[in-house]
Amino acid sequence: MADVRYTKDHEWIRVEGSVGTVGITDYAQSQLGDVVFVEVPEPGRTLEQGKESAVVESVKAASEIYAPVSGEVLEGNQALVEDPALVNSAAEGDGWFYTLRIADPAQLDGLMDAAAYKDYVEGLH
């Protein structure tokens, strides 16, 4: 089973070997409201951990999505660009944003696992 890790900024990354798939959490989408537009990175772009990697917009807000780890973009989710509502209906599934080749797997150690993220979100209220 693939390992999923979470950031305090509400991104998730599913790790399969050296490839990571990145999205935003279900909690994040519930806070954003109806998502109407996304921007995903071009393949080949080099991302730096914690820096802007994609954009998600609802009617009333625009948010940057940060790269959970550094790496090179392999693919942006074009299905998501076509149908941004996927973020709302399947934030942690079909609503993924991009895949990347993970530059430094050690960076994953600093992220939360599912249980820790759950506690973290509950602590926000």
């Binding site: 537009f37 917009e57 609802s58 009617v59 009333k60 807000a61 625009a62």
Partner: peptide, 13 residues
């Protein structure tokens, strides 16, 4: 519509 381009939402962006 498309207000996310605008200052009251995007602020410095």
């Amino acid at each position: 519509t498309l207000s996310t381009r605008e200052q009251h939402i995007r602020r410095e962006k």
